[in-house]
Structure formats: structure tokens, C-alpha cells
Nucleic acid binder design. Structure first.
Lengths: 230, 230
DNA sequence: TACAAAATGGGGTCATCACCCCATTTCCGC
DNA sequence: GCGGAAATGGGGTGATGACCCCATTTTGTA
């Protein structure tokens, strides 16, 4: 967890005095809508933002951010080719001054925690009116992180997954990845019996009793990289 | 499968000569964007469409359609409270003259088939530019069904699930629902051995070898009602 | 340093699953 | 009505999973 409260979304350049932004979402209609409203003068700030590039998958996002080092990256984390929290970590490495704001319809508690720990400065839900995002963006661009109330509520009742130890989490993700105890044991360089122990222990903690229940849980928590929805 | 090619999207009333439409999507930004562009005169037709109501969940959709009996219903099928194909069937019953067009980011082949069989007159992907939808809407409103090329491709390589028999499909959905062979046997009023037979047979047909693989398949195909994404 | 939690791994048991064999019956289409 | 696919269900086997018991070691933290 990095404590970057008060972080400055400096970015690399501000073309013509306007702050730059990369918009990433796998849905064209959402991208278009965001671009329209972000670049409109007087909406976010008096000049409007400069949308330097759009991206519709994870690879394109990384490429765009590397190229432009924008002040702001607005992205949905459920995208093809590279999704989830890893992308944010990559972005922090390649362009640490870019301020990353997540705008998503996903509600898996496990993933949400990851986003914050990896350095997302803003968290907004697509279920909320866009105004929520627009209202808070100026503040975020000044360096104050913000999380939408909807997500704050989800984060408060903290995920049952926090009760798991590191080893148990690794085991969980391999189990839902379809690996047998023996395969997991090889991958972790430990005995199958230890894997069995981790497995029994985590199922006990989560009060689950079969692989199917385990996967249902993993889907809710966002542990599984599932085919995209909505 | 109903052959309603050439169906007329009459609806109930055309307020002020404009065709009426209900817009349903769980994401506010998408709703707003659609409403803006649909009601704009000269875009779909010269008068623009009359957006009579918006809905953000399955119940609201049904209520809105019952109330307005619009010419057109534009909806995303992955919504809270009531999702998927059942909603379309309900709508056909309550307002048979409403023309239902699905606009979604979902790509599960199994569900797509259901949508068409249940009477969707249009199928568009959120990954495509909105223009695709706008261009084809007038035609659909005249009564000619249309499916976006992206989905046509998905539908052509028809789902492996079509190789399954009725009993095997029932078994499949119960297995991924977390039921044991014994429980399934009780539910179906047959012997556990027969369930075992169905199970073995369907896994053979789908070339799967574990419950986890089975669930991964079910997710791809849209058999499982998964937590909403994107 | 001392203590607790985590991680390691061995023993066993029982249920379930994946897959093979086999047979009978039921039902739909030609 | 005949044939074939589907559905039914019984026997069996080996593998795996879900738990129980137990112990040792490692690690982090008070």
C-alpha cells in the first residue's frame, strides 16, 4: 500500500496549457461519451482537457500511456488482453506522474482493494451518474484521491479474503485456475499434503465446501479473469 | 424459434408522430449517451425518437414497457434483478408490438442464441462504434431484423452446446450450480448412476475433464448467471 | 527472546468423481 | 414397424477431494 495522498498529477506535458488525458474503455459508446464531456471547455476546468489518445484494450492503454505520459488516465479495468490491477502497476512504473482514475461497472470486492493498493487515485462506478465523476475529477487532478460512496461501502465490509494467509490465497487462485493438488504442489515446490492443508484451511475460513462454491466465491471477489460482461 | 422476419414495430402510440423508445442499461453514462443521440432530430429519422422512459434494472424495464408499450426497446441484457433472455420473452408477452433491440458488451454464445429465439429484432455490440447501431435502427424500425457482424460470426461457429442432448444440458446447469450427482438425481427423479452417465457423456462431448473446466465453459457460454462485469 | 501465527508435511478415512463395462426401455423419424 | 438416438440404470475401478488426526519448522512481532 502506497500512501500517495496529496500526490500530484503532474504528467509530462500540458499541451497548450490544457491537461492531457488518455481514455480507455472497451466500449466505443463510453469512450465517445467521456471524450466529449472531458474535452468540453468549462466542464472539468475552463479550458477543458486534451484527450491525447483512446484505447480499447490493455495493450493499447500501456502503449498510449508510455507515449504520452498524460496527466490523467481514465480507464475501465475489465478490458480484453490485459485487465485488472496489473495494468495499473505497469502504468505507475512507466509513467509515475500519471494520475490513474478507474471508471468501471465491476463490483468485485477483491479487485477493488487491489486497485487502491496499486495506486489508483480515483474509483467511480458506471452505475452512478457521470456527474459524480465530473464533479470530483478537478479535485483528483489537484492531487486528492477520491472513491465513490458506492465503492466505499463495498470496501468497508472488507472482503472475507483478507482472512486468508498469503499461501492460502495462492492456493485459491491455482485451484480456481483448474490445477489439481499435485500440480499446485509442483508449482509451489511443496508437498501435495501441504497444498491439501492450505486448501482445507481456506475452505474452512470461507465456509465453502466444494470447488463449485469456491469458484462462485472467486467470481464474486474478482479473483477469476472472467469473460467480459455487460 | 419464431420467424418474425418482417415484423412490424408498431408499438402502441407515436407521440406527436415520433416513434417512442425505452432505453435500458445499468450504466448511467451509456443511457445518457443513447438518449441524447436517439432523440436528436435527423439522426435516426428526421423527427428524432421520443425517449419515454429509462430503466436501470430488469424490473424497471418490464414496468416501463408495460406502461408505455413503446415502438422500440433498446436494452442491455446483463442488468441487475432480472437479466438475460427471460426478460425479452416477458416483454413479447406484455407488449408484442414493441421491437426489442439488444445492445450489449456480453459475448456468451449460448445467451446470444436465446436472445434471437426469444424474439430480439436487433443485436449490437458495445465494442462496435455506436454508428453501427444508429445506421441500422431505421431499418429495424421498418421491420427488418439485424445482427451485427461481430455477433453473426459468433453465431456461425455454433456453440458446442448444441451437441448436447436435453438431459445433458439440464445436468450441466445443475452441476455448475453446485449440486452433487445425488442431489441432481433427486431433482430429476432418476438414479444417480444415470446422472453420472449424462455427466460423463457431456464432458466427453465438450472435451472437458474437471468441474473447473466445466464452469469455465459455462461462463463462456453464458450458462451461469455471473456477477456483472465491465 | 519468547510467543503466536503461518507454513510445512505425514498419517488416515470416506465420499465423490471420471471413466470404463454392460443392458433395457422409450421415443421420434423414415 | 423398424432403426437409431436418447434415456435409463447397474457394476466396477482408480484418482482426487474434503476433512480429521498429528508433528516440526519458519517467520514476524511484541
Amino acid at each position: 500500500m502506497n500512501n500517495n495522498v496529496g500526490w500530484n498529477c503532474r504528467g509530462d506535458k500540458e499541451e497548450g496549457g490544457r491537461k492531457t488525458v488518455v481514455v480507455a474503455d472497451d466500449h466505443a459508446i463510453v469512450r465517445q461519451s467521456l471524450v466529449d464531456v472531458l474535452s468540453e471547455p468549462g466542464r472539468i476546468n475552463k479550458e477543458g482537457l486534451q484527450v491525447v489518445e483512446q484505447a480499447e484494450d490493455g495493450f493499447a492503454v500501456l502503449a498510449a500511456v508510455k507515449r504520452h505520459k498524460p496527466n490523467l488516465l481514465l480507464l475501465d479495468i475489465t478490458m480484453p488482453l490485459a485487465s485488472g490491477a496489473e495494468i495499473i502497476k505497469d502504468i505507475q512504473r512507466w509513467s509515475p506522474d500519471t494520475c490513474t482514475v478507474v471508471f468501471t461497472g465491476m463490483e468485485a470486492t477483491g479487485l477493488l482493494w487491489g486497485l487502491i493498493e496499486d495506486g489508483a487515485q480515483g474509483l467511480f462506478s458506471k452505475a452512478d451518474p457521470v456527474e459524480e465523476l465530473l464533479d470530483k475529477l478537478p479535485m483528483i487532478l489537484e492531487g486528492t484521491p477520491y472513491i465513490a460512496p458506492r465503492f466505499q461501502a463495498l470496501l468497508h465490509k472488507k472482503s472475507a479474503i483478507t482472512a486468508l494467509t498469503a499461501r492460502e490465497r495462492q492456493t485459491l487462485s491455482m485451484v480456481v485456475g483448474g490445477m489439481s493438488n499435485r500440480e499446485i504442489a509442483e508449482a509451489m515446490n511443496i508437498s501435495p499434503k501441504t497444498v491439501d492443508k492450505h486448501r482445507t484451511s481456506l475452505m474452512n475460513k470461507l465456509n465453502l465446501h466444494s470447488v463449485v462454491e469456491l469458484i462462485a466465491f472467486a467470481l464474486r471477489e474478482g479473483i477469476i479473469d472472467q469473460p467480459h460482461g455487460s
